[in-house]
């Protein structure tokens, strides 16, 4: 048997041993996975960011301006020193500020305007028919937004609309739940298929 398949099979079974109960074999596999994943991320970040974006352009291409993010990055390590840990706030503030600056127009476009424009569909179609889907989307969107409108008490027409909104929210939660469970199940089927076909050779 291929050593890779053997390793993957043993580790897969070690993780599934948790279905019986929490046990040392599972804990060991879990710790192993955590360590390997961090090590993997470390290598990828080192290669794709530190080497490709910092070291090569700074020392090979002479882009001296990169000294600034390098220094800001090093300031992050001040978190380990009690006296100077406040210095780590500077790179954090830079990241949060830049992220917030990008987020305002991006959120306005992708999360607000784009969603609104996609929800506005013609109620009457080209051949004169009634577009029930457009009505469902419009009613669903407005009633769900009414549910999240907290500036007025949910009484009277707003209360009734908000209640309708909860029904749409339940449909969304139910559909998302079903979709999530099925995606996890398909992953499970994939793992069982690997165990029975490649690892144990029960299915050929």
């Amino acid at each position: 048997m291929d050593i890779g398949v053997l390793t993957a099979g043993i580790l897969t079974l070690a993780i599934y041993s948790f279905l019986y109960k929490d046990n040392p074999v599972y804990k060991m596999a879990e710790s192993w996975l955590i360590g390997l994943s961090i090590g993997y991320a470390l290598v990828i970040f080192w290669q794709t960011t530190i080497i490709d974006i910092l070291i090569v352009p700074l020392f090979k291409d002479g882009r001296v301006v990169l000294v600034i993010p390098f220094a800001l990055g090093l300031l992050m390590f001040s978190r380990f020193s009690r006296g100077s840990s406040w210095l780590s706030r500077i790179p954090i503030a830079f990241m949060i500020g830049a992220g917030a600056g990008v987020a305002i127009p991006a959120m306005l476009y992708a999360r607000t305007l784009k969603q609104m424009s996609a929800s506005v569909m013609p109620l009457i179609t080209e051949n004169g028919g009634f577009n029930i889907e457009a009505l469902v989307v419009a009613v669903g969107l407005l009633s769900t937004l009414a549910y999240f409108y907290f500036s007025r008490e949910h009484k009277g027409p707003i209360g009734k609309t908000a209640k309708l909104g909860t029904y749409f929210l339940m449909i969304f939660f139910g559909a998302t739940f079903g979709y999530t469970v099925m995606s996890r199940m398909s992953t499970f089927v994939g793992r069982v298929d690997f165990l029975l076909t490649d690892f144990l050779h029960v299915i050929r």
């Binding site: 609104m116 929800s119 989307v137 669903g140 969107l141 769900t144 937004l145 909104g165 749409f168 969304f172």
Partner: peptide
């Protein structure tokens, strides 16, 4: 449709 409407909201 109904799920997407709530998702958009």
């Amino acid at each position: 449709y109904p799920s997407m409407a709530a998702r958009r909201a």
